[in-house]
Amino acid sequence: MKLVAGSLRLLICALREIFDESAYERFLLRHKLPRSRATYAQFLREQELTKARRPRCC
């Protein structure tokens, strides 16, 4: 049971990382900002500089 719960937690962590939810949390933590539309827009602007430059693989 412990193993299943641990694996599920890990899966959710991986999904949150893949889908940039963790990156947003870190952004809020780094800038000590609350979760809001304005801070998410700010996060997206920062992401645009890095994420949009990453190639998707073939």
Binding site: F19, E25, R37, T39
Partner: peptide, 13 residues
Amino acid sequence: LRRLRPGKVLETS
């Protein structure tokens, strides 16, 4: 994602 649920990417997906 931008207006209603900022940052909730998994839910939006």
